[in-house]
């Protein structure tokens, strides 16, 4: 935040006890305290260093333990605070010094310059709209992601990116290649791609989670894809999937504990005449319900099995 020149202003109480109170911090506790005190007849000075009172509560969706909407609780109190005749709001202010004894304090408060006359301002917001510098992003200092990656990974990513034009349009092809190289998209790789292609991290993450070709968790050594296209569906693919799930003990998208198999589903491979189709690594297999057990045994022992004759096809 740019430094704002301060105007020293002291709020001094004279020695006669007038029953005024200063509440420091305008969060929900400060607000409630101020309201209670003000209702009891005390003059209250509510001080907060921020531009507005409310604290952390407006950022919350729900409150513990009743799950009530937090703004619904807070908003009426904000209004009441600003309207209460006994409360003097001092926002953008900091307590600088405190002297005296209970019942007779002198507080020094530094009120930051607002450059806006609070008495006249109606909070219409027009000044915000037209201010030309309000879109200057306030980012943490940029760090080179490469310092957190091992050299080998950096080299792999650099090699992939060098095969594509270095701009936004390469994002999907680059991620496709990297997903193949790393078998998934590790977080550091995503960060690095965002840095090199100069695409916001949020956009890279959006793309990486939008398309089914990408995964953020490591895949197993072998991938089993079950086609769930319409033709496969009517020919029993859901039952084949159930069978595979039972046999491997995993759900689609998961990997077996030994890291051998990852189960995936795909919305049509375009080999509908074969259905139901299961692709193990790159081999297409025609798997009718009940046949997966044999297939996986053969696969494990490394024997390629010929495609069984389709059912229901008469010569």
């Amino acid at each position: 935040m740019a430094a704002i020149s301060g105007e020293e202003a002291a709020v001094k109480k004279n020695t006669s006890k007038k029953g005024s109170v200063m509440v420091v911090g305008g969060g929900i506790s400060g607000i409630q305290s101020s309201l209670d005190l003000a209702d009891a007849g005390f003059k209250v000075y509510l001080v907060d260093e921020n531009q507005s009172i409310g604290g952390a509560m407006p950022q919350l969706d729900k409150t513990f333990p009743t799950n009530d909407c937090s703004m619904c609780i807070l908003a009426p109190k904000l209004v009441a605070t600003s309207r209460h005749p006994n409360i003097k709001l001092m926002t953008a202010s900091e307590v600088k010094g405190l002297q005296g004894e209970p019942g007779n304090f002198v507080v020094t408060v530094n009120r930051k310059a607002r450059s806006v006359d609070e008495e006249l301002c109606t909070a219409c917001g027009d000044c915000v709209e037209i201010c030309p510098v309000r879109f200057v992003p306030q980012l943490p200092e940029e760090k080179d992601v490469r310092t957190e990656m091992n050299d080998e990974d950096v080299k792999k990513v650099d090699e992939v990116i060098s095969n594509h034009p270095q701009d936004e349009s390469s994002l999907v092809p680059v991620l496709e290649d990297l997903n193949e190289v790393f078998n998934h998209l590790p977080e550091m790789v995503i960060r690095y791609v965002s840095q090199v292609l100069d695409v916001p991290l949020s956009q890279v993450y959006n793309v990486a989670t939008f398309f089914t070709a990408f995964t953020l968790t490591p895949r197993g050594e072998h991938t089993i894809k079950v086609c769930l296209g319409t033709a496969c569906h009517v020919r029993g693919a859901p039952r084949v999937l159930d069978e595979i799930k039972l046999s491997l003990g995993i759900e689609p998208g998961e990997t077996t504990k030994d890291g051998m198999f990852t189960l995936e589903t795909v919305n049509c491979l375009g080999t509908c005449a074969l259905g139901p189709v299961v692709v193990m690594d790159d081999e297409y297999h025609m798997v009718t319900p009940g046949k997966f057990g044999d297939l996986i045994e053969d696969f494990k022992s490394g024997i390629a099995k010929p495609i069984p004759k389709p059912e229901g096809v008469k010569k």
Partner: peptide
């Protein structure tokens, strides 16, 4: 990269644009 909606022309172009 595997999204049915990319058959729709404006979605397809969005994905080419990255």
């Amino acid at each position: 990269a595997g999204a049915f909606v990319c058959g729709e022309e404006t979605a397809l172009m969005a994905s080419i644009e990255g």
